[in-house]
């Protein structure tokens, strides 16, 4: 298995070693290993049922490995799930925030769970970063489109101020312009030192935003693609070809 060259000076934020996860009697992750250095954007790419979301849930301690281990900032998740979760901001796929609350109320409620008392200016700044219209912020979220809800969820992940972000299909429901904005935002966060593991089946987006892509197929890592030095993106053609080959298999 290919390893990302990591400088010994850069600490490892997330790692999976020989990870095997069984759900409902079915092996959904098979001997998966990878490491993600601090400040890196890492994409797990794969089709439906590849085991991408399962990987994220294992890092959050919602699923226990059948064998192998997952570590957050060098510490085994099973040893201290709370500590792992405190280090992580998680954006689930199609995050269903509370429809009877508006954007501010949702953000305040979820952040208060993390004992964060975030004031209105900070909320507005985060919502500005995800380009949520100001006039929509006081409206109940049940009136939002899927993209608008996703923007609020992304804003929440930003406001969480955790060193690690786990993003499950973050661009799902966003329009192309919003996807571009999101990709820019992810790069900015990484440059600010945040570690980002995103799960997607969007080959184009992953190639643009990630430093490394691991291709998952039926629970196995079947390919790894790194951003070549000096290039602004991973070779989309190569990734797409590998993706298509495995999808057809």
């Amino acid at each position: 298995m290919a390893e990302l060259p990591v400088s010994p000076a850069i600490p490892i934020a997330l790692s999976a070693q020989a990870l095997r996860v069984v759900r409902s009697g079915q092996e959904v992750l098979k001997d998966v290993s990878f490491r993600i250095a601090q400040g890196e954007v890492h994409a797990l790419l794969g089709g439906n049922g590849a085991g991408k979301s399962t990987t994220l849930l294992t890092f959050l301690g919602f699923l226990a490995p059948a064998s192998g281990s997952v570590q957050v900032r060098g510490r085994d998740v099973s040893e201290d799930i709370r500590a792992a979760r405190q280090a992580i901001a998680y954006l689930p796929e199609a995050a269903a925030l509370y429809g009877h609350l508006n954007a501010y109320e949702n953000l305040r409620y979820f952040l208060s769970l993390a004992r964060m008392d975030t004031q209105r200016p900070a909320l507005d700044a985060a919502l500005d970063r995800v380009a949520l219209q100001a006039e929509a912020r006081e409206m109940r979220m049940q009136t939002y489109s899927k993209g608008m809800r996703q923007k609020v969820a992304i804003a929440m992940a930003i406001l969480r101020e955790a060193p690690i972000l786990l993003l499950d299909e973050p661009t799902s429901g966003l329009d192309p312009a919003a996807i571009d904005d999101f990709n820019r935002l992810v790069r900015e966060l990484a440059e600010a030192g945040r570690t980002i593991l995103l799960v997607t089946h969007d080959v184009y987006g992953a190639c643009h935003v990630a430093d490394r892509i691991d291709l998952l197929h039926k629970g196995e890592l079947v390919g790894t693609f790194d951003r070549p030095p000096g290039m602004d993106r991973i070779d989309t053609e190569a990734v797409h070809a590998a993706f298509a080959t495995h999808a057809a298999a």
Binding site: L57, L60, F62, R82, R85, Q86, I88, Y90, L91, P92, E93, A94, A95, A96, L97, Y98, F110, L111, L113, A114, R115, R160
Partner: peptide, 18 residues
């Protein structure tokens, strides 16, 4: 069912919260 369970649990700092 609403897909919030993991998010709520992951956000919560206190044991058993919310």
């Amino acid at each position: 069912a609403a897909g919030r369970y993991e998010l709520l649990s992951a956000m919560a700092v206190s044991r058993g919260s919310p």
